[in-house]
Structures are given as C-alpha cells and as structure tokens.
Measured scan of single mutants.
Amino acid sequence: IEKFKLLAEKVEEIVAKNARAEIDYSDAPDEFRDPLMDTLMTDPVRLPSGTVMDRSIILRHLLNSPTDPFNRQMLTESMLEPVPELKEQIQAWMREKQSSDH
C-alpha cells in the first residue's frame, strides 16, 4: 500500500509539472495564426496569391488538392516561399510568452 501511495504522489507531481509546462498560445496575434486552421504558425510560407500559411497545413492540403485553398489556382510545394522574418517574430513572441508564464 505504501508503494501505491508513493506512486500516486509521483503521478500527481508529474501531472502538476506538465500542467505548468503547457503554455497557452490562444492569444496569438492574428498575423501569427494560420488563416485556414486558426492555429499558431511555426513555419510560415507565402503562397503566390500573397496569403501566408503554416507550411504543415498547406502541405497537408496539397496532398488532397494541388491548389491554393483560397483561389483554387494551381499550387505546388516548390511555389511556397518561406517567410523567415515572420517566423522569427513568432518565435520571439513564443519565447516572451514562455518567460512570462514561468
């Protein structure tokens, strides 16, 4: 029984630690959010139409349809242009958020 109590305490400790580690990014500025999924972008790319999306989301879309989801023009992965300035701004915002939450 004592071992179970210790195990339960350890589990509670881990759960509390994980809860502290989770950071809420739901208040991200609109320009940091993917327009299709409304999630925080981690690897922004510009489509030929000028729309900026997260790379993982547009690549997932391209698996089903080789088109720009906003104007239905033909689109391939090679046409995606990285946006390193925005990526750095997002990373800086995330770092600031992490340091203010801890």
Rank of each mutant, 00 (worst) to 15 (best):
Ile1Ser: 14
Ile1Lys: 10
Ile1Thr: 08
Glu2Asp: 14
Glu2Met: 11
Glu2Asn: 14
Glu2Gly: 08
Glu2Gln: 07
Lys3Ile: 02
Lys3Glu: 06
Phe4Leu: 13
Phe4Cys: 09
Lys5Ala: 14
Lys5Arg: 08
Lys5Asn: 08
Leu6Asp: 09
Leu6Arg: 15
Leu6Ile: 09
Leu7Arg: 09
Leu7His: 09
Leu7Asp: 03
Leu7Val: 06
Glu9Met: 09
Lys10Glu: 12
Lys10Ser: 15
Val11Trp: 05
Val11Leu: 08
Glu13Ser: 11
Glu13Arg: 04
Glu13Ala: 12
Ile14Ser: 09
Ile14Asn: 12
Ile14Ala: 04
Val15Met: 09
Val15Leu: 11
Ala16Thr: 09
Ala16Val: 09
Lys17Val: 15
Lys17Ala: 15
Asn18Arg: 15
Asn18Thr: 09
Asn18Tyr: 09
Asn18Asp: 14
Ala19Arg: 14
Ala19Gly: 10
Arg20Ala: 13
Arg20Glu: 11
Ala21Gly: 07
Glu22Asn: 13
Glu22Arg: 07
Ile23Asn: 10
Ile23Lys: 14
Asp24Ala: 07
Asp24His: 08
Asp24Asn: 06
Asp24Lys: 01
Asp24Leu: 02
Tyr25Gln: 06
Tyr25Phe: 12
Tyr25Ala: 11
Tyr25Asp: 15
Ser26Trp: 14
Ser26Cys: 14
Ser26Asp: 15
Asp27Ser: 13
Asp27His: 05
Ala28Gly: 13
Ala28Pro: 09
Asp30Gly: 08
Glu31Gln: 10
Glu31Lys: 07
Glu31Asp: 11
Phe32Cys: 01
Phe32Val: 01
Arg33Thr: 05
Pro35Ala: 01
Met37Thr: 07
Asp38Ser: 02
Thr39Val: 02
Thr39Asp: 14
Thr39Met: 02
Thr39Ile: 07
Thr39Phe: 12
Leu40Gln: 02
Leu40Pro: 04
Leu40Ile: 09
Met41Thr: 00
Met41Val: 02
Thr42Leu: 08
Asp43Tyr: 03
Pro44Val: 01
Arg46Ile: 07
Pro48Ala: 02
Pro48Arg: 02
Pro48Gln: 07
Ser49Thr: 09
Ser49Gly: 04
Ser49Phe: 15
Gly50Asp: 03
Thr51Ser: 12
Val52Phe: 05
Met53Ala: 14
Met53Ile: 15
Met53Thr: 15
Asp54Gly: 02
Asp54Glu: 11
Ile57Leu: 04
Ile58Thr: 03
Leu59Met: 15
His61Asn: 00
His61Arg: 00
Leu63Ile: 12
Leu63Thr: 04
Asn64Leu: 03
Asn64His: 05
Ser65Ala: 04
Pro66Cys: 06
Thr67Val: 00
Asp68Asn: 15
Pro69Phe: 00
Phe70Ile: 01
Arg72Gln: 01
Gln73Leu: 12
Met74Leu: 14
Thr76Val: 07
Thr76Ala: 05
Thr76Leu: 10
Thr76Asp: 06
Glu77Asn: 10
Glu77Met: 07
Glu77Ser: 04
Ser78Ile: 05
Ser78Ala: 10
Ser78Gly: 13
Ser78Trp: 00
Ser78Val: 02
Ser78Glu: 12
Ser78Lys: 10
Met79Leu: 07
Leu80Phe: 08
Leu80Val: 06
Glu81Gln: 09
Glu81Val: 13
Glu81Lys: 13
Pro82Ala: 11
Pro82His: 03
Pro82Leu: 01
Pro82Lys: 00
Val83Arg: 03
Val83Leu: 13
Glu85Gly: 13
Leu86Gln: 04
Ile90Thr: 03
Gln91Lys: 10
Gln91Ala: 03
Gln91Pro: 00
Ala92Glu: 06
Ala92Cys: 02
Ala92Pro: 00
Trp93Ser: 01
Trp93Tyr: 04
Trp93Arg: 01
Trp93Gln: 05
Met94Asn: 06
Met94Leu: 13
Arg95Asn: 05
Arg95Glu: 08
Glu96Val: 11
Lys97Pro: 08
Lys97Val: 06
Gln98Ser: 11
Ser99Ile: 09
Ser100Tyr: 06
Asp101Cys: 06
His102Ala: 07
His102Ser: 07
His102Asp: 14
His102Pro: 10
His102Phe: 08
